[in-house]
């Protein structure tokens, strides 16, 4: 299982956008396979015809009145951004030019 599972860990870490050091991966593979093995015991329960519970309150979706209200000022909203410029957050480039795409 573990050797196989390291590949699985690689895949899941990619989905979760989570960089793991090689030794971290190996350690985690062992722990995750134990945890998931324990979790699998819920398969023993018969849940035929049982609806899933995603929430306990059974409240209907609440819609508020569509009214203009004050929101966080731009400065406040950006105060924690690690990189910002002229009222925007700054990130590495995420789009490619047409030539680059080819």
């Amino acid at each position: 299982m573990p050797a196989d599972f390291v590949r699985e860990v690689d895949y899941v870490a990619r989905l979760a956008r989570l960089f793991l050091e090689p030794e971290e991966k190996e350690h985690m593979a062992g722990q995750l396979s134990d945890i998931l093995e324990n979790a699998r015991r819920i398969q023993e329960l018969d849940t035929t015809g049982i609806e899933p519970t995603s929430h306990v309150t059974e409240l209907p979706a609440v819609l508020r009145e569509d009214r203009v209200r004050p929101s966080l000022p731009l400065e406040r909203a950006l105060q924690n951004a690690p990189r910002r410029k002229e009222g925007f957050v700054r990130v590495p480039r995420i789009t490619l030019s047409e030539e680059e795409q080819e």
């Binding site: 998931l36 819920i42 329960l45 849940t47 049982i50 899933p52 519970t53």
Partner: peptide, 15 residues
């Protein structure tokens, strides 16, 4: 289905 959905059904049984 095998993990998350099943766990939510078990939650119904717990309730």
């Amino acid at each position: 289905d095998a993990y998350y959905l099943k766990a939510m059904k078990v939650r119904t049984l717990v309730r």
